[in-house]
Structure formats: C-alpha cells, structure tokens
Simulated scan of single mutants.
Amino acid sequence: MGQVLSSNLSYKQIDDRDVFMLIGTVREGIKYGLFQNIADKSPFSTTEWSNFLHLSERTFQRYKKDRRTFDPLHSEKILEITLVYNKGVEVFGDKANFDAWLSAKNVALGGIKPKELLDSTFGIGLLKDELTRIEHGVLA
C-alpha cells in the first residue's frame, strides 16, 4: 500500500472501489481546499454542511478562514456524504433529478427529506439502501 495524498483526491475519483485510499484520506484528514471543491459541486449550503458535520457555523467559518484540515471523524463524514451523493447522481442519471429527490419529502423514509438523514452514519446507510432499491426497481 503506497502513501495516500488527499490533495490528489478529486471529486470524481471518490468511490468505494479504493477503500485503502479512502482510509488513508480519512486518517490524513481532508484539507479545506478539497472540501471546498466537493462542497461547490454539491447542492448543500454551508449551513447544511455544518449541520451534517455537527460543527457550529462559527467553527466552520474558522476552518475556511484558516484553511484547516478536518479531523478524521469529519473527514470520514465528508467522504461518506460524497459517496452517497455520487451514487445518487448515478442512480438518477442526472444531478438535477437527484438534487430534487434529496429535497422532497419521502414516504419510504418516514415522510422526511432524504438530505435530513446526512447528519448520521445510520441515515447515510438508510439512503444507500434506498438508492439501491431505486436502482433495482424495488420501490417500497
């Protein structure tokens, strides 16, 4: 296993096929610049990201100002959200359609908006399961 450099990790490359790269990136921490690149391609606001990562908006702004590196727990959550987002775009075939699905109340998910589940690993797992069902045409 070679050295993993998170600065070489691009938004498009993030998938679960290279688990060791993901583990290395989490351990190293995601630099704010890479996070900004990911955030710019996502439909989520800074407020939503701070909620997903359980960071106050003030702390989040300090990360931005100081160009800090996220700790492993926050880095892992950023990657988990990115993976589920990439999967959703792939399943829906279109970013706009998936973004709309994320923001619409969903009966299969207890009447909440899917993006409201991105603040916990359990919620992210639930979204992955739902995307798999949609992908295979099994709608509950």
Rank of each mutant, 00 (worst) to 15 (best):
L22F: 01
E90Y: 09
S45W: 08
G33H: 05
L131F: 11
K87V: 00
R58V: 07
P43A: 11
W49S: 08
F92E: 05
L83K: 14
K128I: 11
F98Q: 02
W101V: 04
L109C: 05
L117R: 10
I30N: 09
W101K: 07
V19N: 03
R58S: 15
Q36C: 01
P114N: 14
D15C: 05
K65A: 13
I30M: 13
E80T: 03
T47G: 08
S56L: 08
I112M: 07
K113F: 05
R58E: 14
E130R: 14
A100E: 10
G125Q: 10
G110F: 07
P72S: 13
E90F: 06
N86Y: 00
R68E: 13
F70W: 03
F92A: 13
F98K: 02
F98W: 07
F52H: 03
S50E: 12
K87E: 05
F70G: 02
V107R: 13
T47H: 07
R58L: 10
D15F: 00
G125I: 05
S50W: 10
T121F: 12
F92C: 08
S103F: 01
T69C: 07
T82W: 13
L22D: 04
Y32F: 15
N97P: 00
K31W: 04
K77A: 15
N86Q: 15
D119P: 01
P43C: 05
V19T: 01
V107K: 14
Q13M: 05
R27A: 02
I14A: 13
T25I: 02
N8M: 06
S56I: 10
E116C: 05
R68L: 12
N37M: 14
G24Y: 03
L102H: 10
N106W: 05
N37P: 02
T47V: 10
D129V: 11
W101L: 07
R58N: 12
L118A: 10
G110E: 11
K12W: 00
S6P: 05
E90W: 10
Y32I: 03
L73H: 13
D94K: 08
F60R: 13
N51M: 05
A39W: 02
S6Q: 10
L9H: 10
E28A: 00
A39P: 03
L126W: 06
L83I: 08
Q13K: 11
T59I: 14
D119L: 01
N97A: 07
Y32A: 01
R62P: 12
E48C: 05
F52K: 02
G24M: 01
K128C: 02
K77T: 10
R27Y: 04
H54F: 11
G88D: 10
E80S: 14
T82D: 11
S6I: 00
E28M: 01
Q36N: 08
Q36W: 00
V84D: 14
L139M: 14
L34C: 07
D99S: 01
L22Y: 03
G93F: 04
I38H: 15
F122L: 09
